[in-house]
Simulated assay, not measured.
Amino acid sequence: MDKEQQQEVMERFFDRFDQLHDELSQFWLDHIFLHWDWWIAAILTILPWICWIFYHKKDSTHRLLYAGLFSIIIGMTFDYIGTSLGLWHYTGKVFPSFPSWSPFHYSLLPVTIMFLIQVKPHIAIWKKGIIYGLLAAFIGEPIFVWAGYYVMTGWISIFSIPIYAIIYMFCDWLTKRESFERLSLDK
């Protein structure tokens, strides 16, 4: 297959994806937007950040946000892989998007990680990572499965433990870096 044929095939895939997204957007407007599950998801997207604004350690704001941003990037990457492989999907979306569930990736994951990083900093990072993985996999995920937001089609919660633990440990490690140097205009 030459490059021109590849481009034609890829254009057909993107046209189908665009059509599917249009259908999802219409379904979202008709059946999800402003319904009770949408309101809960919207609150779960906003409320954790409001709590974080008032209760985070103010002198660590930038370090914590740095860790939070990386948790979003890593979580979204893993989520894209998992949904692409058909291991899970979401309902009750705040936005008609593929594949992520924004309350988790943009709010619950980063805020809980940032809170845990600043609480009991003397506890070993690996212990907190395992605790976070266990809580997220065996309490968080089942709650969202029960509520109907998260549908596992080829995944079991025990697989999530090391993933959550590693995401937490990496983000905690990032907050402890002392290698940032001020940028100057001089060369």
Rank of each mutant, 00 (worst) to 15 (best):
L134A: 10
E4C: 02
I125P: 00
A42N: 04
F115A: 10
K58H: 10
W28Q: 02
F104K: 02
Y106V: 09
Q19L: 14
H105Q: 07
V119Y: 13
P162R: 02
S107P: 05
L87A: 09
G86V: 13
L44W: 11
L20N: 12
F104Q: 06
I53P: 01
L69A: 14
F95L: 15
Q5Y: 09
I143N: 02
W101G: 03
R12N: 12
W146A: 08
L20D: 13
D18F: 08
F54P: 00
R16Q: 09
I123P: 00
S157V: 12
T77D: 04
S25E: 11
L185P: 00
R12D: 13
S97R: 03
W39M: 04
A165R: 01
T45H: 08
F14A: 03
W173I: 03
I156P: 00
S60I: 01
Y149W: 01
E181P: 00
L20H: 08
F13A: 01
L135M: 15
L135S: 12
A147L: 15
I166Q: 00
W36F: 10
E181K: 13
D186G: 04
H89Y: 15
I130G: 08
F33G: 01
K3I: 14
K120V: 11
D22P: 00
I123M: 12
G82N: 12
D186Y: 10
S25M: 08
G86H: 08
K187M: 10
S184I: 14
K128L: 12
F17I: 09
A42S: 12
R177L: 14
I73K: 05
T45I: 04
S160E: 04
S179F: 05
Y132N: 11
T45P: 01
V119Q: 11
A136P: 01
P96T: 01
W146Y: 15
E11R: 13
K57S: 10
Q118H: 06
F54S: 05
F17S: 07
I158H: 03
R177S: 11
I156A: 07
P142E: 03
Y66W: 15
E178K: 14
S160A: 15
I113T: 07
P48S: 05
H56W: 02
Q118W: 05
M152E: 09
E8V: 13
D37M: 12
Y80V: 04
W126C: 11
I123T: 13
L64N: 06
M169S: 12
T153K: 02
H56G: 02
I40M: 15
I163K: 03
W126R: 08
G75V: 06
F144C: 06
Y164K: 02
F14G: 01
F14S: 02
W49S: 06
D15Q: 14
E178G: 07
H35Y: 15
K3H: 11
G82I: 04
G154N: 09
K57Y: 04
W39V: 03
R63C: 05
I156W: 09
S60P: 00
Y66A: 05
E4T: 10
T153C: 07
S84Q: 06
S102R: 01
M10G: 00
P110G: 06
T112L: 15
Y55N: 09
L87W: 15
E23W: 07
D186I: 06
K93H: 13
L44G: 02
Y168M: 05
A67W: 09
A41H: 05
H31Q: 09
H89T: 10
P96Y: 03
S160T: 12
H35W: 09
S100Y: 14
M152D: 03
M169N: 04
L135C: 14
